[in-house]
């Protein structure tokens, strides 16, 4: 199959980006917090799809495994434990809605303007081969072994801290 199917791939990626932006707007505006958490899961899946289009498949699967599989479970557990079933009609936005919208749109506009204008030093498309899992493993245990060890300590600290904070005083 020597067909060039990249046009369909690109259309799919743009569609996923659009759906992710709409879902992100849903995350920050929905009143029902459970639905906001579900739209966050949609954004995370969209991000994983964008990673696949950037040829970072390992990172996409790690994103799905950790974010959608574990972090969403945590968030939804917390939503279910701290909300009553009749809570959706309470307004979820505080009174700073309009100034926040102005500031954030200004920030977004400035960022996008600079991004489109800056001369990024993009190298030619075929220079580096796509990153394989072997390359990631060599870098993780070669150059970046010190952050790797530190992050395992951080994870243990977070585990012990979360258990200590959340347990009942008996």
């Amino acid at each position: 199959m020597n067909a060039d199917l990249s046009l369909f791939g690109n259309i799919a990626v743009y569609a996923i980006m659009g759906v992710s932006v709409i879902a992100a707007i849903g995350v920050v505006t929905l009143r029902n917090l459970f639905h906001a958490a579900l739209t966050l899961a949609m954004v995370l899946l969209g991000t994983a799809a964008v990673f696949i289009s950037l040829q970072a498949e390992f990172l996409a699967m790690v994103q799905i495994l950790i974010y959608v599989g574990a972090v969403m479970t945590l968030i939804i557990f917390a939503v279910m434990l701290t909300s009553r079933l009749t809570d959706e009609s309470i307004p979820q936005q505080n009174k700073q809605g309009f100034p926040a919208f102005l500031v954030v749109s200004l920030l977004g506009a400035v960022l996008i303007f600079i991004l489109l204008q800056a001369p990024w030093p993009i190298h030619a498309p075929g220079v580096h081969s796509p990153v394989s899992v072997t390359d990631l493993a060599k870098a993780m245990l070669g150059n970046y072994v010190f952050p790797f060890e530190v992050i395992s300590v951080i994870l243990i600290a977070a585990l012990i801290g979360a258990v200590t904070i959340a347990k009942k005083d008996s």
Binding site: L38, A41, E57, F58, M61, V62, I64, L65, V68, G69, A70, M72, T73, I76, S132, V133
Partner: peptide
């Protein structure tokens, strides 16, 4: 034939929790 097949299986089957 993905080159990350096992990780794909584990990742996709972990989304059942949602």
């Amino acid at each position: 034939n993905l080159n990350i097949g096992i990780l794909y299986f584990l990742a996709v089957s972990s989304t059942t929790t949602i």
